[in-house]
Design a protein around this nucleic acid. Structure first.
Length: 470
DNA sequence: AGCTCATTGAT
DNA sequence: TCAATGAGC
């Protein structure tokens, strides 16, 4: 039987159930659809990654004599036409992850079944598919720790599926050319930085995993917090595009000889990803709306000059600015820095987490709707199990604690390259004239435009009024 | 997975 | 003068 394999966020050959099953049943037409109704974000780093990922996938399919067929338009119409014209017996795909994608799944399924073609979905996007995680005692899980304890105690993911040994080909249409989709960045310099930083595609993802487990997993628990240390896995963009599956990662990590403490800490990060998916499944409004509804009344400030400065990495707080510039330059940012930058936007600038989440969505190569929203709500204090609102990061102290030598800041904020460690995270104090700083430090680096202390107090006051109205 | 301020006890 | 500690935000 001939099948369509509709590649979505599972751009890999190994451990890919739709591809695996379809290829055992008969010839395959591999398809990727650019559906404008699902692609409402401005083009950014993610598009660069996606283009690379599609090229890599096509390269792998070509070793089997297949070509990834690129098509643009409404997914359900495209799939219906292909299925009808090519005498297709079934369409295989990974199920949608967002509410929007899941609505599309229903539409696709309805239209295909009208043509007598089953729409078969299966995925290994998560260690436990969100629909199979039993609810807690009183409904869906709301707190991470019991959720993860529960999952962890019963987790024994199946072995990853191998890549199909042979894939037979359905002769199909030529499809469009990726070059015509305009996803390659218009600015060559930017692409160069991206290429130096990342390598999209399944082969790179598997190599990254090997390298991480061999060299970085030991010490992960401590080093992950130090942005200059390169102590994180850097697997998130591969996961976001499905170039690798979490159970492939699970397998390698649990088999590793690293200390249990480090292994468990890393698996817990996979756990947060699972938790975000669980939350989204049971709270489909979570992408736009706070889980704690009282936050609907929080007096967020309008985006304005402050938001512009935050986005450009010109707030005057070195750790925040380094992170925001890294994001803009490379599409990445380590978790610790994300928390600090996000806390600063929400608590010190008083701007809604939704504005921040939108900017991250546009710029992160590892953008994942569920994880992004869940993490922003965690920082903002409006999630079900989030940092308490009054937990406010101080970017100066965080900088001094986690980037004491300023290696990370200096890398992304060159204006500060020659500032002595002592002042690196509070450069405005130099112009205060201590006299200890010979040399030319007058630079284009901006002075802070908010006061950490007063903005913090204002945020706490707004929050208190929220919880005790009247 | 925080910060600040006040207090305390050691230098 | 300053590190350690704890309460409260």
């Amino acid at each position: 039987m001939r099948s369509i394999v509709w590649f979505r966020h599972n751009l890999r050959l190994s451990d890919n159930p739709p591809l695996y099953h379809a290829s055992r049943e008969g010839p395959v037409l591999p398809v990727y659809i650019w559906d404008p109704s699902l692609d409402t974000l401005p083009d950014g780093a993610r598009k660069w990654w996606l283009a690379g990922s599609l090229r890599a996938l096509n390269g792998q399919l070509e070793t089997h004599g297949l070509t990834l067929v690129l098509l643009r338009g409404p997914s359900e119409e495209i799939l219906f036409r292909l299925a009808r014209d090519l005498q297709i017996g079934a369409v295989h795909a990974a199920p949608g992850r967002t509410p929007e994608e899941r609505r599309l799944d229903l539409k696709v399924s309805r239209i295909l079944s009208g043509a007598g073609v089953p729409f078969l979905t299966e995925s290994t996007d998560y260690l436990i598919a969100p629909e199979f995680v039993p609810e807690g005692r009183s409904g869906p899980w709301k707190v991470f720790t019991p959720f993860w304890r529960f999952c962890r105690s019963r987790l024994s993911p199946d072995s990853p599926l191998p890549a199909p040994a042979k894939i037979a080909k359905v002769p199909g249409p030529r499809g469009e050319r990726l070059e015509d989709w305009g996803w390659d960045p218009p600015v060559p310099d930017w692409a160069q930085t991206m290429r130096r930083t990342w390598r999209p595609g399944e082969a790179a993802a598997l190599e990254r995993l090997e390298l991480f487990v061999a060299e970085t997993l030991a010490g992960y628990g401590r080093r992950r917090d130090f942005p200059a240390e390169d102590g994180t896995s850097k697997l998130s963009p591969h996961l976001a595009q499905g170039e690798i599956s979490p159970r492939q990662i699970w397998r390698k990590v649990t088999e590793s000889k690293a200390l249990e403490k480090d292994r468990e800490k890393f698996l817990e990060e996979l756990g947060w990803r699972e938790f975000a998916a669980h939350l989204l499944r049971h709270n489909p409004e979570m992408l736009e709306s706070p889980l704690r509804k009282i936050f609907l009344n929080y007096p967020w400030k309008a985006e304005g000059r402050g938001f512009e400065l935050w986005k450009r990495g010109m707030t005057g707080f070195p750790l925040v600015d380094a992170g925001m510039r890294e994001l803009r330059l490379t599409g990445g940012m380590p978790n610790r820095v994300r928390m600090v930058a996000a806390s600063f936007l929400v608590k010190n600038l008083g701007i809604s987490w939704r504005s921040g989440a939108a900017w991250f969505a546009e710029n992160l190569v590892d953008y994942d709707p569920a994880s992004n929203a869940a993490s922003w709500q965690w920082v903002a204090g409006c999630g079900t199990d989030s940092a308490p609102f009054f937990r406010i990061f101080n970017p100066v102290l965080q900088g001094e604690r986690y980037d004491p030598r300023g290696e990370y800041v200096r890398k992304f904020v060159p204006e500060l390259a020659r500032i002595p460690d002592r002042y690196l995270h509070r450069p405005w104090m130099i112009s205060g004239g201590s006299g200890n700083c010979p040399g030319d430090f007058s630079s284009s680096y901006p002075d802070p435009f908010v006061d950490l202390k007063t903005s913090r107090i204002a945020a706490l006051q707004a929050f208190r009024r929220l919880s005790t109205p009247g």
